[in-house]
Amino acid sequence: MEGRTVPTLVKDEELIKKRRNQMIKSAVSLFKQKGFHRTTTREIAQTAGFSIGTLYEYIRQKEDILYLVVDSIYEQFCSRMEEAVSQGGNSGERLHNGIRAYFKLIDDMQDEMLVMYQESKSLNKDSLQYVLKKELLLTSIFEQLITDCVDENICHLSKEEIHAFAHNILVLGQMWAFRRWALHSLYTIEEYTELQMKLMNVREKIPI
């Protein structure tokens, strides 16, 4: 899926990747503390360890950094999810593994998740549409896993149920980040994952 191009004055692709990764890390920390609108590009550059002039060699405006942050998060999610579900086993095992991998990713990237959902509204229309398509791409990974289970006669679900099931998985994973202030004192991520799978009747619907 092609995203928009963020302008840069630098030709070295490796250096672009390095500097932008530094910006992303810095921006996530600052956006979490202060929000997108209250964070300045000078603060992002300072936290990243270079000058404001250097920062503007790699981006055009502050919104570009937010776009890079959100795009990077989705890229990591989709890449790591595709890797997790490509492991062997039948479709039921792949779905179970995919749910566990997704919830663990949420746990690993809680700060990024919060920034993404709190601040993505500040993106321009085209950038927002792009990241929303990435969200649907992530949902489609689970839709395909569930569809594979249906095709192999491991379970029997309608198309409408498959869509709802996939969205439920995403939202329940995201809840670990959004309500961590309440959940972390009650469960480990492993306990939370197994509990949610039980509440979704995953094992009953799709036994392995």
Rank of each mutant, 00 (worst) to 15 (best):
C149F: 02
C149R: 01
C149L: 05
C149S: 03
C149V: 02
C149E: 05
V150A: 05
D151G: 05
D151W: 01
D151F: 03
D151K: 12
D151H: 03
E152W: 03
E152C: 02
E152M: 05
N153M: 00
N153P: 01
N153G: 02
N153E: 09
I154D: 06
I154F: 05
I154M: 08
I154L: 07
I154E: 05
C155T: 07
C155F: 05
H156V: 01
H156A: 02
H156E: 04
H156M: 04
L157C: 14
L157P: 07
L157V: 09
L157Q: 08
L157T: 09
S158Q: 10
S158G: 12
S158C: 08
S158K: 08
S158E: 14
K159V: 03
K159Y: 00
K159Q: 07
E160G: 12
E160D: 13
E160Q: 11
E160V: 01
E160T: 06
E160S: 12
E161Q: 14
E161R: 09
E161F: 06
E161T: 05
I162T: 08
I162Q: 05
I162E: 08
I162H: 10
H163R: 15
H163Y: 13
H163I: 13
H163V: 13
H163W: 10
H163P: 08
A164M: 13
A164H: 10
A164Q: 11
A164N: 11
A164T: 10
A164L: 12
F165W: 11
F165N: 10
F165A: 13
F165M: 14
F165P: 10
F165I: 11
A166S: 07
A166D: 01
A166L: 00
A166Y: 02
A166G: 02
A166R: 01
H167R: 11
H167E: 14
N168I: 08
N168E: 10
N168Y: 07
N168F: 07
N168L: 12
N168P: 09
N168S: 13
N168A: 15
N168W: 10
I169L: 03
I169S: 02
I169C: 02
I169Y: 02
I169F: 03
L170C: 11
L170E: 14
V171R: 05
V171W: 07
V171L: 08
V171M: 10
V171G: 08
V171S: 10
V171H: 09
V171A: 09
L172K: 01
L172M: 08
L172N: 00
G173N: 01
G173T: 01
G173H: 00
G173P: 04
G173L: 03
Q174S: 15
Q174W: 13
Q174Y: 15
Q174T: 13
Q174P: 11
M175S: 13
M175E: 15
M175C: 13
M175H: 11
W176K: 13
W176A: 06
W176V: 05
W176E: 12
A177G: 06
A177I: 01
A177T: 01
A177S: 11
A177R: 05
F178Q: 15
F178P: 13
F178H: 14
F178D: 15
R179L: 09
R179S: 10
R179A: 11
R179I: 04
